[in-house]
């Protein structure tokens, strides 16, 4: 294991639920409760120094009945040039603290994760729909969402004077 993983496991110990190393592609899994704490550590610690949130995305795994949703953050450090993937598993309706205070770029990513998967974020400054219309119903990237048909949204031609 690399010095990076050593630093993280030393700091959190058993609270890191799982670690992975696929051809140098490092992954850790944490509990939703430790999400903000781990990411804060990753950004601020001298050994990790992840100054950039590459992307933050949701996932839907219906076969995982206990916690069907996943939240994935890809971190990049410009100081050391290393990367890290941080994962957490969520149940339906479970919210995690927003990381917009750590990386402002998380704003849009979290909005998208919320509108596509219904993953809530507490403390997000502006959690509204990003890509679909405001009155869209449903979370279109969930696996149980209909694949065909113009479902959920509608063309709001009545709004055309206000946009």
């Amino acid at each position: 294991m690399s010095a990076l993983m050593d630093a993280i496991t030393a700091a959190f110990g058993a609270r890191i639920l799982e670690t992975g190393d696929f051809r140098g592609d490092l992954t850790i899994s944490v509990a939703p409760e430790a999400w903000l704490e781990v990411l804060t550590f990753c950004r601020d610690n001298e050994a990790t120094k992840f100054d950039m949130l590459d992307c933050l995305l949701g996932d839907h795994l219906p076969e995982r009945a206990a916690a069907p949703f996943a939240l994935v953050a890809q971190l990049v450090s410009h100081t050391y040039g290393h990367r890290l993937r941080v994962k957490t598993a969520l149940t339906e309706g479970q919210a995690v603290p927003s990381v917009t205070s750590l990386w402002p770029s998380a704003n849009f990513d979290e909005r998208e994760a919320w509108e596509m998967y219904g993953i809530g974020f507490t403390g997000h400054p502006n959690l509204i729909r990003l890509l679909t219309t405001e009155d869209f119903e449903g979370f279109p990237m969930r696996k149980d969402f209909p694949l065909e048909g113009t479902v959920g949204g509608r063309v709001r031609t009545d709004l055309r004077g206000k946009i």
């Binding site: 119903e137 449903g138 209909p146 065909e148 113009t150 479902v151 959920g152 509608r154």
Partner: peptide, 12 residues
């Protein structure tokens, strides 16, 4: 407009 209705089937 179409409404998301998981129970009532889907338009095709």
């Amino acid at each position: 407009f179409y409404r998301y209705d998981p129970e009532g089937g889907r338009p095709r």
